[in-house]
Design a protein around this nucleic acid. Structure first.
Length: 312
DNA sequence: AAAGCGTGGCA
DNA sequence: TTGCCAAGCTT
């Protein structure tokens, strides 16, 4: 959960997961659908599948979380960082988990001028030397937590609080008064904007028409309103009706904007006038009361669209 | 190996 | 408003 996600965001999700799945065994035997539904709003939905597969694999192997980095990294969703975090915090082994905080601290401590991400290997080499002190090696977990907390609260990306930093004595960037300029970043490509049309379709019982997105790609496996693919410009309503196979008379509701990591999305919303007579009950068409939507995985984008449609 | 993959908070 | 960034992993 914490991968690329702030602690304050994770806490309520974490508590809910622990309540529903007190043991690895509980989660391993839960349906993926339930885990996906509980992940609603947290983003990066492949993490939910990986977590489920990971727990199932551990239970299959006997139920003990592996104690070697090699075995941990072989599990779905666990890479260099997470394996090191488990080993240091969970098993008190002398690993240094290298996240964005540790990279930033390291870049400043050693005044690394090379920009991210190409400096990652060099920063990793340097970061792995940070625990070469007796106190650090006695309590590897506390040492790792300490690095995270310094990064999050003192050695911040902007306006680092060097005046109260316990590392300022040994920080090369601070000595050179360039802490706030590091780490340097390579320029990112400009975000493209994509456009789509989505349809708000309610039946006579007040249920909404949903479909399930493909298991790969953006928002994989989450529920969505019938939608066109997202392309270079707004598709016409006619195109949307053909593409979604939802014939009928529609009225325009308005446009919604949503920002993803690597593109911006603009969605034009239409609502069906009256009730549909064209939708057959089949595999891809799913009618849901809004009250039962929480049993299904649903992106924040889709919740935004639904809220907008209901209000309009 | 570079790109794909969410969302929310904050300057 | 916009851009940055967060306890990264996968392909």
């Amino acid at each position: 959960m914490l991968q690329q996600t702030q602690v304050s965001t994770v806490i309520p999700y974490f508590n809910n997961f622990i309540k529903n799945f007190p043991t690895l065994n509980d989660m391993a035997h839960a349906p993926l659908d339930k885990i996906m539904a509980m992940w609603t709003g947290l983003g990066y939905y492949s993490r939910a599948r990986n977590l489920h597969r990971c727990v199932q694999e551990i239970v299959k192997q006997g139920g003990a979380v592996p104690k070697t980095q090699e075995a941990l990294k072989a599990l779905p969703g666990i890479g260099e960082y997470t394996s090191a975090a488990i080993l240091s915090i969970g098993y008190n082994q002398p690993y240094v988990p290298i996240d964005g905080n540790v990279e930033r601290i390291t870049a400043r401590l050693f005044a690394v001028q090379e920009p991210l991400p190409s400096s990652k290997p060099a920063l990793a080499m340097l970061a792995k030397t940070l625990n070469n002190h007796e106190e650090a090696l006695v309590r590897p977990g506390d040492f790792a937590q300490g690095l995270f907390d310094i990064g999050a609260t003192i050695c911040k990306p902007k306006n680092p609080l060097c005046l109260i930093c316990p590392l300022s004595d040994v920080c090369k960037a601070h000595q050179e008064k360039i802490a706030d300029l590091l780490p340097k970043k390579q320029k990112k490509a400009e975000k493209p904007t994509k456009f789509g049309v989505s349809l708000f379709i309610q039946n006579s019982q007040g249920q909404l028409l949903f479909r399930k997105r493909p298991e790969k790609g953006v928002l994989a496996g989450t529920m969505e309103l019938p939608s066109t693919i997202w392309s270079e410009q707004f598709p016409s309503l006619e195109q949307a009706i053909i593409e979604t196979d939802c014939k009928g008379e529609y009225k325009k509701l308005g446009d919604i904007k949503h920002v993803f990591t690597h593109f911006t999305l603009k969605i034009r919303l239409y609502a069906l006038v009256g009730h549909p007579d064209f939708i057959t009950q089949d595999q891809k068409n799913i009618w849901l009361d809004l009250k039962e939507l929480h049993h299904y995985p649903c992106s924040t984008l889709m919740r935004k669209m639904i809220a907008y449609s209901v209000k309009t």
